[in-house]
């Protein structure tokens, strides 16, 4: 029997960690990684939920999430390269020309 409650709790903790990572890291690469953590935490939650109802759907969605996360990150990395090209830095706080 899959421990559903604990599964949700774990995914919640992971998700929170991911959020904290996004908030505290200034390096764009680490931000992207933290987002991966968040997405995967959500995926875990789906798996846990699927296990609760004995359905494969949760895991199917997890695959979706994995695929989309990969797509996001690939676009993200392209932008990271361009960012580094222009700013010679990956500090997210530096890219704040637009404000107000």
């Amino acid at each position: 029997m899959f421990p559903i409650r604990e599964g949700f709790l774990l995914s919640g903790v992971l998700f929170t960690l991911g959020v904290i990572g996004v908030l505290v890291r200034r390096n764009l690469l680490f931000v992207l990684m933290s987002i991966e953590v968040m997405l995967n935490a959500a995926g875990l939650a789906f798996v846990a939920a699927g296990a609760r109802w004995g359905q494969p759907d949760g895991q199917v969605v997890f695959l979706f999430i994995l695929a989309m996360a990969a797509a996001e990150v690939s676009v993200g990395l392209a932008l990271v390269l361009e960012l580094y090209h222009q700013y010679k830095s990956l500090d997210t706080d530096a890219i704040s020309r637009m404000r107000g």
Binding site: I4, L32, I35, A41, A42, G43, A45, F46, W53, V61
Partner: peptide, 17 residues
């Protein structure tokens, strides 16, 4: 958008759960 998508997905997981 990625962050918010993660929120969305997590929320959907909870509802599904």
């Amino acid at each position: 958008a990625a962050v918010s998508a993660a929120f969305l997905v997590f929320g959907m997981a909870l509802v599904y759960g």
